[in-house]
Nucleic acid binder design. Structure first.
Length: 358
DNA sequence: CGTCCTTTTCCTGTTT
DNA sequence: TAAACAGGAAAAGGAC
């Protein structure tokens, strides 16, 4: 931060510019009261007067102060030298800002800051678009990101997800998996999905039957010692997950799952909210409804989280997916691993219905 | 409470 | 060889 320009001085300069122009109201905006020359933003702004409150608001509802907060944040983030940025060009409310084209922003804020502001704004607009209507899957994905233990991702929010890919090491993506298994202490900071699976989920039938130490550990009915051989088929009674892991601790348990919690809808919702999809799945052919699991076990864990089932695996999830073939909710995609296709009895994923051109 | 439906779990075998 | 796929069987459990 030492190399970044002092935001206060930038805005003070802008302030002077504004008053020199004499065209602005003499009513001093609240944030101006805190601007003093040569002090850092963090020391001269009490109570977060120039704060991040705008982040919780609809950009359309941003006040002039909120717009300044937004621009200031971006200036800070970019370490942009805004000495010659005209303050008057920043004086607008959110509604006006939202109507600016990228070209207008380039004109008003320059070729460097302008596009960044436009890009950043579009993310807030997207967030607001989904904000009040975030469906459960989206909230799950957000909570999923919030719960990650990796420092970088622990501060990552939904609208920053796309920025993760700008990081060179992609460490965030890989640490998804570590975070999903807080019981494990092994360092999984650099592993693929398969490595994660190998470490966490026994893959052979033999190991599977003796496995599930984790599962036995919190099953009220399963008695580990009694299952030296095969376990009975069928679904064991629902687990008592009082100690089922931190993902499950804070979730309210409703007596009945709400409608719209089918697996295929869950998958669909992950796919149609790419900004909330931290590399879990991707469209192979958006128009045809062909998609691929990128982090199959991560998706399975997320599904398990939704269903309050800490022992969900991709193997089980995929069995449920295969049942959809007969009902034509999914279609087979032969020869391609981890690839599925939505069928004629699924809905809500089509470009027309989502309004997305991705 | 019974029935239906959607998973969930386990399993064996096959394919990639 | 491991991972993924395929699909039968049985049962859980939510919806109605």
């Amino acid at each position: 931060m030492s190399t970044s320009p002092c935001l206060s001085s930038v805005l003070t300069h802008a302030n002077l510019t504004m008053y020199e122009s004499g065209s602005e109201s003499l009513h001093e905006p609240a944030y101006m009261q805190y601007l003093e020359p040569d002090c850092s933003r963090h020391t001269c702004i009490p109570g977060g007067a120039i704060g991040t409150g705008y982040k919780q608001l609809n950009p359309q509802d941003w006040s002039e102060e909120n717009v300044i907060e937004f621009i200031s944040d971006n200036i800070d983030k970019l370490k942009f030298d805004a000495t010659y940025l005209s303050f008057s060009s920043c004086r607008m409310d959110g509604r006006y800002l939202c109507h600016m084209t990228e070209g207008q922003m380039v004109h008003d804020f320059g070729p460097y800051l302008g596009p960044e502001l436009h890009h950043s704004l579009s993310k807030y607009v997207a967030k607001t678009k989904y904000g009040p209507d975030l469906n459960e899957t989206c909230r799950l994905l957000e909570g999923f990101l919030d719960s990650l233990s990796y420092p970088f991702l622990s501060t990552l929010k939904v609208n920053d997800v796309c920025d993760v890919k700008k990081e060179s090491d992609y460490g965030a993506t890989y640490d998804l998996q570590q975070a999903m298994d807080p019981l494990r202490e092994t360092d999984l900071s650099d592993h693929s999905d398969s490595e994660y699976r190998a470490l966490q989920i026994p893959s052979s039938p033999e190991s599977r039957s003796s496995d599930s130490d984790l599962e036995f550990a919190y099953s009220p009915t399963a008695k580990k010692d009694e299952f030296r051989g095969k376990r009975p088929r069928g679904r064991p009674p629902k687990l008592n997950r009082d100690n089922g892991g931190f993902f499950f601790e804070n979730q309210k348990k409703t007596k009945h799952a709400p409608r719209g919690t089918h697996l295929w809808e869950f998958i669909r919702d992950i796919l149609i909210h790419p900004e909330k999809n931290p590399g879990l799945m991707k469209w192979e052919d958006r128009r045809e409804g062909v998609f691929k699991f990128l982090k199959s076990e991560a998706v399975a864990h997320l599904w398990g989280q939704k269903k309050k089932n800490s022992s969900m695996t991709y193997e089980k999830l995929s069995r449920a997916m295969r049942y959809y073939y007969k009902r034509e909710i999914l279609e087979r995609v032969d020869g391609r691993r981890l690839v599925y296709k939505f069928g004629k009895n699924s809905n809500g994923w089509q470009v027309e219905s989502t309004g997305m051109a991705i």
